[in-house]
């Protein structure tokens, strides 16, 4: 039987939805137990949140100094130590999970299963390679722990319950001092979170400038949507990096994705292929985005987008 340890992700106040998605992936193993480990300088309320995720037995709430919980090298040894009593150790396939989980795998002497998109059985998983152009089925060695990151767009978040798992408080000891957190600069957060929003409006190179992106924001506000961007728009300096959608940005699965002035490079498409409905607005009828779009509209985005915002 499987005993799963899940690494929780949070921003200091709230658990990230990736944690509830990792719980869903863990449930697909029909495990005997699911435990959660979380690291924070003030873990109390986060631990309470984690304890109400379904089927969780124990939450290990590990108190750290200040920002140590953000540093992979600081927390990986404690995860690996707890992990020794588990058959599976899952983390989210977010920048946080991608940073720390391979360290856990190395400490346990295994290769990691990156970006799990489907659980077939306790040791068999599907994952994407070549930017999602190929899906492989991988089998992990029978007698070793499975360390994996869960591709968040592939799993629905587990619903929080009224039940409460037991919480075990610990303190992080002997963390290395060779790494130090300095700052985190985030874009404005007035709009819904890009990774969890049900509607996302994204702009690409075709939007033309940072000023023109106002058009994207206006449409997003009308739809109550999060805003995203292609790599080209980020590289051009129109918008900050945290808006990037795609292979090296965020992999998302909103119900509605509106791609404006985005040609649709394969690296971008891999970030949206789990979206419910994709709408593409582009002046080039040959743009690859139309190959994946459910609804396409060819034309001048500078006319179409204001009209759409007006009429919605």
């Amino acid at each position: 039987m499987s005993n799963v340890l899940i690494l929780a992700e949070h921003d200091g106040q709230q658990l990230n939805q990736s944690t509830a998605k990792a719980v869903t992936a863990a449930q697909a193993l029909n495990p005997e137990t699911i435990n959660i480990v979380l690291f924070a300088d003030e873990p109390e309320s986060l631990a309470t949140q984690a304890a109400s995720l379904p089927g969780v037995k124990t939450v290990y709430a590990v108190k750290t100094d200040d920002n140590q919980w953000r540093l992979a090298a600081a927390i990986a040894p404690a995860i690996a130590t707890l992990g020794q009593n588990h058959s599976h150790i899952f983390g989210p396939s977010t920048t946080f999970g991608k940073d720390v989980m391979p360290r856990v795998a190395a400490l346990l002497g295994v290769n990691q299963v990156s970006d799990i998109m489907e659980v077939l059985d306790s040791h068999t998983f599907k994952r994407p390679i070549y930017a999602g152009n190929v899906i492989v089925t991988v089998k992990t060695p029978d007698n070793k722990p499975v360390v994996g990151t869960v591709r968040t767009a592939s799993f629905k978040p587990a619903d929080y319950t009224n039940e409460a798992a037991s919480i075990e408080h610990q303190e992080l000891k002997n963390a290395p001092t060779h790494s130090r957190f300095i700052t985190l600069e985030s874009g404005d957060s007035e709009r819904p979170d890009l990774q969890t929003a049900s509607t996302v409006v994204s702009g690409g190179r075709g939007v033309g400038s940072a000023e023109n992106f106002q058009m994207i924001y206006d449409l997003a506000d009308k739809l109550g949507a999060a805003t995203g961007a292609s790599r080209a728009a980020v590289d051009a300096g129109f918008v900050p990096n945290d808006m990037q959608v795609g292979q090296t940005g965020k992999i998302i699965a909103p119900d509605l994705y509106v791609a404006i002035g985005i040609s649709g490079a394969i690296q971008h498409l891999t970030g949206i292929k789990d979206a419910g409905t994709i709408v593409a607005i582009n002046k080039d009828p040959e743009a690859p985005i139309f190959e994946v779009a459910d609804i396409g509209l060819v034309g001048d985005l500078f006319k179409i987008v204001p009209e759409l915002t007006e009429k919605l």
Partner: peptide, 8 residues
């Protein structure tokens, strides 16, 4: 990082 730019 997902939240923006982190400096360490």
């Amino acid at each position: 990082v997902d939240a923006g730019l982190e400096t360490i």
